[in-house]
Amino acid sequence: MKILVPIAKVPDTTSKISFTDNNTRFNPDGVTFIMNPTDEWYALVRACELKEKQGGEVVVIHVGTPDAEQIIRKALAIGADRAVRVDADPTDAYFVAAQIAAHAKAENYDLIITGKETIDYNSFQVGGMVSEMLDWPCVSLVQKLEVENGVATLRREIEGGSEIVEVKLPLVVCAQKELAEPRIPNMKGIMSARTKPLAVVPPVEVEKLTAVISYSLPEKAKQVKLIDKDNVAELIRLLHEEAKVI
């Protein structure tokens, strides 16, 4: 089975977020970038598990600039066989999806596993877009994935529960928590990652459909109103009369 895993680069979750150029640009100074957690912990690990069990190949693809090398090497250390970086600034989901779809069309994949969303723009777009571009079925918010004889059985989250579905490959899966247990790369993985192939390719030409024109930070930290622990009735009163939520 040949599996493609698109990985995104995002600011570390604890990063302080700031903007420059009159709040029109994200300021990367002093920010540590990591692999998008859902991609690393669930999409990539499940892809590697399927390959280890059934044979085949796991390829990671990243649309981004050269500074993503560290993240790509980490994906290789976790277990991907090779990597492709599309050399372009990933500012629009449609543009990113088109790059991934173009690569997928050129190679013969059985499965593409993306993360459900990135933690920076929280956009939930790329997986669905890739599936539409390829005219493949797509299942999102996937918590469980098994493949047998070219048919995938998946559990996906629905409001207030989950649903088991069956789909023939090829298929796009958008992963979420529970799909796998996060893996820490071992020494052997880290060593072999250095020599695994990383191809850098130019982007295909596609238009961008959206643009961010400005950012803003929340006005200021909320001022908490403290209520004495022996006067719980006061909290109820405030929630009713002031906040009007009960």
């Binding site: 989901a93 449609y94 929280n122 877009m129 539409e132 459909l209």
Partner: peptide
């Protein structure tokens, strides 16, 4: 969350999630 990005591609329409 899944329908909208697919529609965006099919209709070639910019999408804000």
């Amino acid at each position: 969350k899944l329908l909208a990005p697919r529609l965006s591609v099919r209709l070639k329409a910019g999408y804000v999630p």
